[in-house]
Amino acid sequence: MLGEGIVKGLAETARNFFGSYVNKERLTTVQFPEERLPQIEATRDFPFLVYDGTDPEPGLRCVACQICEKECPPKCIYIVKSADKKPDATGKAQFYPAQFDIDISVCMSCQICVEVCPFDAIKMDVEFEMSSEDRFGGLLLDKYKLAKSNEYYNKIHPTEAGAVDAALAEERAKAKLAAEAKAKKDAEVAAAKAAAAAAPPPPDATPALAAETPAPAVATASGETK
């Protein structure tokens, strides 16, 4: 009979209409600003700079190596390397970015800067409500706006941040060991020199040789980290 399917369809839409008033589960819409879906952990949109500790100024992991600036496909990163060196979070003297700008109106969220960074200094953020009335200045983020603490990073991407922290801790421990060993060796060398200067006949080479053994480790560790 003509019109049978129409009646069936009308019944279906009527069921939806009344059902949506009775059964809240039918309405899958999330009323956005008031209620939000939990973000999945892999969410990522724009890069930010990670800093250790509480103060972004000394704690910034970035050493202004400018690899991300060179790799960025749309060229949205602008870095000015500092002339002097300042101690970083671990106390080591490093270059630091005098200026670090990301234009998020240009950024295409490709994450290449994160991939290439050897210092785990730049990571992807989850902040997306960044609309601004000033389309030039408002979307150009400087290093103070970009800097976010490691705790924040741990909060938004716990698994990834945990792995990064573990790797960094290991590296730093190694570097520390190496530094200590180097310091010890330097001290011993200095002592030996002093001793040599004090006593012209050389006693024997054994302490110097013993200090020689951790030297390759120092070389690799320093090459890897800084």
Partner: peptide, 10 residues
């Protein structure tokens, strides 16, 4: 609003 409700929207 009616169309929305028929499609289970607000």
């Amino acid at each position: 609003k009616g169309l929305g409700r028929m499609q289970n929207r607000y």
